[in-house]
Design a protein around this nucleic acid. Structure first.
Lengths: 245, 245
DNA sequence: TCGTACAAAAATATCGATTTTTTTATGGAC
DNA sequence: GTCCATAAAAAAATCGATATTTTTGTACGA
């Protein structure tokens, strides 16, 4: 075992993998487990690791160049995100997807986010308002796609999009609910990636976000909720046909 | 802290840990990881492992008599239930509790379960109705406490109580939402255990369950929701004073 | 042809030792 | 006394080897 270490120590340029972390702490060197967790997570969301695929420890161990323990631990952690399934004595596998499950996901997201949004609108203070404005602005400043021609997703947009939606509901008063919404959001991203669909039907998503932002700031819970659900439903219905196998 | 060990080894009379399992599969021999998972979970819920307590691998390894890998894996799995926290490079610890967090938990439970109950009432078929009736009946057939004098909780009642509440919302149409409710329920059990309070104020919990059951079967979503939230709020407010540290 | 039993192979699960990192303890310097 | 550096101890993380279990493949008999 020569010097894999030196190489690994350098990782993590600080771009920060959103909230997708295996632990709470952030400072100090990153453990092999955390690294494996992040990479596995990315590979599952991006679809490199296919739904239903068996996750053989030995294979991953070689591929990611770590021991069995970190791999197994990372997979165990991924279990909570519903990205990985664990079967006693028969290892791990990537969670399956289906049109039915996607429908459920969409429905559940709408339920939870609507509730969170209403509470947020009810209780959000001026700091929340400012954060919403800022998040909306930041989202509007980056293009949806890296290249308008080939419709390759812009990671910066993805990140800001999530941040905008999470900020909207951040004042709901329940960290638990926020966590659930966060999970569902990431699940949804996975479905979006898997659909393989790059371009969306011509609709002005930016305008939708703007309207949503305005309604929230105007404390119009009814309107905001309606816009949010419509926002999700529209994307959802579009994706639905793409799934299945 | 001398020999808590002997005590620990005896736990788990085989009464089956509800749905608290580390994996999906059920047949075949149970892995060390699953065993450790179950025991750790029980010990945390029951309060043997105190909130905030550091979970030293070596200690647990000796106490539970398994290697480091199963312990670490089990702890990683417990992370998803919010029973254990993981800190990169500094191990695991039992999740903390606080009155504030309990309030949040209670609130979130009400939000989610109310939604689930309404959906369940809206979509539940005759099979659901029958299951509800059955669950309510079974719950009514066992005493709340093992001994009416010392108010020691009756595990059978605990299990049936959970089953009743989960059955009520089982027709909500979202496995995801059910999972969340399940998690929150178990969190709540932990708080109940930690409060150390055995006896509840004189109120007819059985009657409350009966009324809730009736309202659900009568498809009276408004009434059922109100009863459910009241049911939780009452217990919650009672427990609140007991917590803190 | 099908089902079964058994052996070989593959993969999982587990262990115990080793390496790394964090925590604790100690000893000045200011 | 407080701050910092450093050494020692403790704990976490990781590895690689071994033990178990599941899966696969094959021959046999109904």
């Amino acid at each position: 075992m020569p010097d894999r270490k030196a190489e690994l120590k350098v990782i993590d340029g600080g771009s920060a993998a959103d909230n997708a972390s295996a632990n709470k702490d952030s400072s100090g060197p990153e453990s092999m487990t955390s690294q494996a967790y992040t990479r596995l997570r990315e590979d599952i969301i991006s679809g490199i690791l296919r739904p239903g695929q068996k996750l053989k420890i030995e294979e991953l161990r070689l591929q990611y160049d770590v021991g069995t323990s970190p791999i197994r631990e990372a997979l165990s952690l991924l279990t909570s995100d519903h990205f990985v399934e664990r079967l006693d004595q028969r290892g791990f596998k990537v969670s399956n997807v289906s049109e039915e499950e996607f429908g459920e996901l969409l429905k559940t997201r709408c339920w939870l986010e609507e509730k969170a949004l209403r509470e947020s609108i009810l209780h959000g203070d001026s700091s929340w308002e400012e954060q919403v404005v800022l998040a909306a602005y930041r989202l509007s400043r980056v293009p949806r796609y890296e290249n308008e021609n080939d419709f390759v997703a812009n990671p910066e947009w993805e990140q800001r999009h999530k941040h905008f939606h999470m900020t909207l509901i951040s004042a709901c008063g329940s960290a638990l609910l926020l966590k659930f919404c966060d999970q569902l959001y990431d699940q949804n991203v996975r479905y979006r990636q898997l659909s393989g669909k790059k371009a969306y039907p011509t609709r002005d998503i930016t305008a939708e976000h703007g309207a949503l932002c305005d309604a929230a700031l105007a404390r119009d819970a009814e309107l905001a909720s309606r816009l949010l659900v419509e926002h999700y439903d529209r994307t959802g219905n579009f994706l639905k046909n793409q799934i299945g196998k």
